[in-house]
Lab assay of single mutants.
Amino acid sequence: MSIQHFRVALIPFFAAFCLPVFAHPETLVKVKDAEDQLGARVGYIELDLNSGKILESFRPEERFPMMSTFKVLLCGAVLSRVDAGQEQLGRRIHYSQNDLVEYSPVTEKHLTDGMTVRELCSAAITMSDNTAANLLLTTIGGPKELTAFLHNMGDHVTRLDRWEPELNEAIPNDERDTTMPAAMATTLRKLLTGELLTLASRQQLIDWMEADKVAGPLLRSALPAGWFIADKSGAGERGSRGIIAALGPDGKPSRIVVIYTTGSQATMDERNRQIAEIGASLIKHW
């Protein structure tokens, strides 16, 4: 067993022997301040990774656009098919120029040779490549099948209805392509620590998230040296922004954090800054 596999296998073990965790309302004060600064709703939840206990939450059962955070769930569904012998990570998928959609920095470079399922998941999570996500959605049967996968996990809230990039439209009061912070946090925890996926697939999923290259201005910008984070960000229309993450000190994750916002007129930089400040408060009061 590799060191990384050992780390993920012992996530519940280490967490069980940690000192009790206590909620700190100071972080919620910052979440509410972010709402004021952005002029928009902000949803927040913080779960203990081992027990699933909610440590703090704000608007945990209000719907927010998922945006690209759905790509972690998508690759979880792909990995479940791999575990069941219905898919192979090494299978190569070929596609054409007509398949390319807006923001496809990886797939646009491989029109000639195609990409493997493993490479597509890596591109979808680490670079948020939209064509990679659409190609992977095709392998599982489309958005409705991802929703069905989530329902089978016990998540009857999260739903995907459309493809990239239309799913980022974020129309107010439109339930399409949305989740709730509580539902997303619980589902992410199941994917990373539950028995739904094999140990190898859980490790692969967290490795992809740990290698995320496009979430630097968010929670990662607030992390002290030595902290662990595996995350996936999302951005959408109407001032929408979000991030889902597993993080913790001492090089291992111990909490799940989900943050979503929508309806702001603020710039992307300002949305990023507010999420980073929430992260800084979380870490300060850990």
Rank of each mutant, 00 (worst) to 15 (best):
E210K: 09
L111N: 07
T261P: 03
L49I: 13
K284A: 07
N272A: 00
A84S: 05
S254A: 02
P65R: 02
A225R: 08
R159K: 00
S233H: 06
L135V: 07
S57G: 13
Q265Y: 08
R176E: 10
A222T: 06
Q203E: 12
E164K: 03
T178P: 05
G216A: 06
T139W: 07
E277M: 14
G236C: 02
K109R: 15
G234Q: 05
T139N: 04
M180F: 02
T261F: 07
G43R: 01
K30A: 15
E56Q: 15
Y103D: 05
I45V: 01
Q204Y: 03
T126S: 09
E195W: 00
C75G: 15
A170R: 06
P65W: 04
G90W: 02
T186C: 10
T178K: 04
L191S: 09
V258G: 03
V214K: 14
G234I: 01
T131K: 04
I45W: 00
T116V: 01
A222G: 11
S221I: 12
W227M: 13
Q37K: 14
I206E: 13
L49Q: 04
T178L: 11
S80V: 03
E164C: 02
C75S: 12
T112P: 12
C75K: 15
G194S: 11
W286C: 05
L191R: 13
P143H: 07
D250N: 09
Q203R: 09
A182E: 11
L28E: 10
L150D: 11
L55R: 11
G90E: 03
K252M: 10
L146T: 07
A245L: 10
T179Y: 00
D212K: 14
Q204V: 02
L219I: 08
E210H: 09
T193H: 01
A34M: 13
S201K: 12
W208N: 06
G226M: 01
D129S: 00
L150K: 14
A124N: 04
P181W: 00
T131S: 11
H110Y: 13
H24E: 13
L100D: 04
K190R: 15
I275W: 14
Y260M: 04
H24I: 02
N152I: 09
Y44L: 09
F149D: 12
L191G: 10
T193C: 09
D212I: 14
S80Y: 12
G242P: 05
I93E: 03
R202I: 05
N50R: 05
C75L: 15
I45L: 00
K144M: 08
E145L: 06
E270C: 12
A280V: 10
R81E: 05
A185H: 02
E108A: 00
K30V: 15
W227E: 12
L89R: 06
K232I: 15
I45Y: 00
G239P: 13
R118W: 13
D113F: 00
W208E: 14
D83W: 06
T198E: 14
G52L: 07
L73N: 14
T187M: 11
R63C: 13
D129W: 00
I243G: 08
R273H: 10
D155F: 15
L47F: 02
K284W: 07
D207Y: 06
L89I: 09
V214H: 15
Y44N: 00
I140T: 07
P249W: 12
K284L: 08
N130D: 03
R176N: 05
D212R: 13
S221G: 10
I275Y: 14
L49N: 01
R273N: 06
T116D: 08
P143K: 11
H24A: 07
Y95M: 07
R41E: 00
N134H: 10
T179F: 01
D113S: 00
A245E: 12
I256R: 01
F70T: 08
D250P: 04
E46S: 12
Q274I: 05
G236R: 03
L47N: 03
R241S: 08
E56A: 15
L218K: 01
Q203N: 01
G90C: 01
E26R: 13
Q203L: 07
S128C: 01
E175K: 13
P224V: 07
L146S: 14
L28I: 04
I125E: 01
S68A: 00
H94Q: 14
L188F: 13
K71D: 00
Q37G: 13
G236F: 03
L73H: 12
E270T: 07
T267D: 13
V157K: 05
C75M: 09
H285V: 06
A245V: 08
L74Y: 03
L120K: 00
K32Q: 03
L49P: 02
L55M: 15
V101W: 15
E237S: 09
G43Y: 03
E108Y: 00
E164V: 01
I243R: 02
A222K: 12
R238I: 08
A133E: 03
E145Q: 09
T158Y: 09
E145G: 11
T158Q: 04
V101P: 08
L28R: 10
K30C: 15
R91A: 06
M67E: 11
V82N: 05
R92L: 04
L89H: 05
V101S: 12
V29F: 04
E270G: 14
I256P: 01
V42N: 13
R220N: 03
T27Y: 01
P181S: 04
M67A: 14
V214E: 14
S233A: 12
